[in-house]
């Protein structure tokens, strides 16, 4: 038996009828529009630990969920520019300090040949940071997720839309959360085991 997780706010430990620790509660929706409107209601109810699941990106979902703007561009810019700077530094050190070779009669410290490499290294660092940063911010790769155990959840990769609210959320309450999801138009509202 897995260890039950206590709710951070009220200290309650929620469990299913079978006695398994609770991950949270999920509700299904038929269309992206339903999902968006339901997300607005969950956002306005003040929940923090929850997410929506959809077969494809839904425009406007960030606003509907109240997500803050992503920090990824700042990280990408910082590392991309650092990478470009390091590329410049390496070329300067190699070609005009450490191992000087006359190439085509050009000066040792000519900056012109450094520019294509500066550009490429900048793009390389930027692209890798964007990809790896996106994965890191999304906590990916994720080898296991409690929702995956739900047969009905698997349809989210086809034609179903799901909101799942975690039991760890300070505002989580088995009855109130169920009422909220029902009022938001959710169907097949179920508890999800840890």
């Amino acid at each position: 038996m897995s260890t039950p997780h206590a709710n951070a706010m009220n200290g309650n430990v929620y469990a299913t009828e079978g006695g398994a620790a609770l991950y949270g509660m999920m509700a299904e929706f038929d269309t992206p529009a339903d999902l968006t409107h339901a997300a607005e209601k969950v956002r306005d109810a003040g929940y923090a630990d929850w997410d929506v699941y959809s077969p494809f990106p839904v425009h406007g979902m960030d606003d509907a969920m109240g997500n803050p703007p992503t920090k990824l561009p700042l990280v990408v810019a910082a590392i991309g520019l650092s990478g470009a700077g390091l590329g410049m530094l390496l070329q300067w050190w190699v070609t005009s300090v450490d191992y000087r070779i006359v190439v085509q009669g050009k000066p040792y410290d000519a900056w012109q040949p450094w520019v294509p490499v500066l550009f490429e290294i900048g793009v390389l660092f930027t692209a890798f940071t964007a990809l790896l940063g996106m994965l890191a911010f999304n906590k990916l790769p994720m080898w296991h997720h409690p929702l995956m155990k739900k047969e009905r959840f698997l349809k989210v990769s086809d034609d179903r839309f799901v909101i799942a609210i975690e039991a760890a959320d300070p505002k989580f309450d088995p009855q109130k959360t169920r009422d909220l999801l029902a009022a938001a138009g959710g169907k097949h509202i179920e508890l999800v085991e840890e």
Binding site: Q104, G105, Q112, P113, V115, P116
Partner: peptide, 8 residues
């Protein structure tokens, strides 16, 4: 500029 600079 770069191509002209390199070819010289």
């Amino acid at each position: 500029y770069f191509l002209i600079w390199y070819a010289n």
